[in-house]
Design a binder for these strands. Structure first.
Lengths: 219, 219
DNA sequence: GCCTAGGATGGCAGTTACTGTCATTCTGGA
DNA sequence: TCCAGAATGACAGTAACTGCCATCCTAGGC
């Protein structure tokens, strides 16, 4: 262990690997990751999530099981991993809103990151079946809700920063920012439910708008 | 398979096993289940959830691993299983509210089932550490959020029944009941967060009240 | 007190998700 | 051409489950 640390440190300090090389590796890594995820999603919607093994996925992309796990920390991540990237976009979207905008409005705008993702022309075909799969497979639903919780944590932190920067900080034990955020995300899930229940007709954006119109901050 | 079904059917129809016997079995089953859960929770808070194996739990209660799985379908269920019983209580609490009460108020009262559970004298000692463990262990948090989602499904169905019985049914695609319920449960989680963040001082009930006061239905 | 039906249990083999390790291979830059 | 370091494959190992079968236990009928 000690040896490993020393070696790692030495390599890093010497900076033998160039910036360019690092970028390239990073890009190819992402490409392979996407390739695996796409192949896996085909299998998942075809046979179901639980009926598809990691070995199946590995075979489909011509890799060893071990290598698949080098790209995804778990089977669920193959489906849900994309949401990790979304968090940064959501924070960026939140920071782009005027600091004095009503929190509820800002939260609605944050969800544009998700709606635009769902309405991207390239991925539209798979959006609904995968969506449905997530809500129908217990382990995926659980993982998805947990991701949403992480997003909320990040958003709450950003909201508190924003309030402080605006000179109107929340008290340390004020549940307001967290409650508002949780309510907004609750509306998001409710919108997903009704969108799926309606057979994914109509726009998802509208569903979010309608859900968020029924609830709001008090006074 | 066919044989099994026929045999089961025959046994059931003949009613060989008496009602009393059935009840007794049921009661002892619950007792054993509780015993396992309590022993397991001790181990969980002591060593952590992931560091405790099913074999550890089985050894602690003097059973085989196989038998533990006859009482709990998964390791998470040992911690989260109790919430399955709560659903029925919540529905009963909801039905006990006046049909014309504001939905937000009824939802707040539904949560009394949870707060009273958390403040029961017998279990108070373990409530906070387990609570904390659930929020800090990813797989438990995911499972917990999923249970909350199930509760919401049940509550939404009941709210729709109630509205229909009162002669003011929701439209089929109206997201209102689901959005309100989701917002309320979001407030619940927010309250749990702030309660834990404050070191579990103050009453949990107050935390829920404060969180739910910041959000509400719109006109 | 014996007998029997049917649940409860234990043990064991098997599957799958995942992890650590090591030897090998690939790749871009000097 | 050579080399550093990343990518890969193969293999062994763990832990959460699941199915199966033989055995045991218990409550009720006789």
């Amino acid at each position: 262990m000690a040896v490993t640390v020393i070696l790692d440190g030495a390599c890093y300090c010497l900076g033998i690997m160039s910036e360019k090389q690092r970028d390239l590796r990073e890009r190819t890594r992402r490409a392979v990751r996407n390739e695996i995820a796409e192949a896996a999603n085909e299998l998942f919607v075809e046979r179901g999530f639980e009926a598809t093994t990691i070995d199946d996925i590995a075979a489909a992309v011509g890799m060893s099981q071990r290598s698949v796990f080098r790209y995804f920390s778990s089977k669920e991540e193959v489906v849900l991993g994309k949401f990790d990237l979304v968090v940064d976009d959501m924070l960026a979207a939140l920071r782009a809103r005027p600091a004095d905008e009503a929190v509820w409005t800002s939260l609605r705008r944050v969800f544009d990151v998700l709606t635009s993702l769902a309405e991207m022309p390239g991925s539209v075909r798979m959006v609904e079946p995968i969506h449905r799969m997530v809500f129908e497979t217990p382990v995926l639903l659980a993982g998805y809700l947990q991701k949403l919780q992480h997003m909320q944590d990040a958003v709450v932190a950003e909201l508190m920063d924003r309030a402080e920067a605006a000179g109107t900080p929340y008290a340390a034990d004020d549940p307001t920012p967290r409650a508002l955020t949780a309510a907004a995300f609750g509306c998001l899930v409710a919108a997903q439910h009704s969108w799926l229940a309606s057979g994914a007709q109509g726009s998802f954006t509208d569903a979010v708008d309608r859900a968020m119109a029924t609830v709001g901050p008090r006074a």
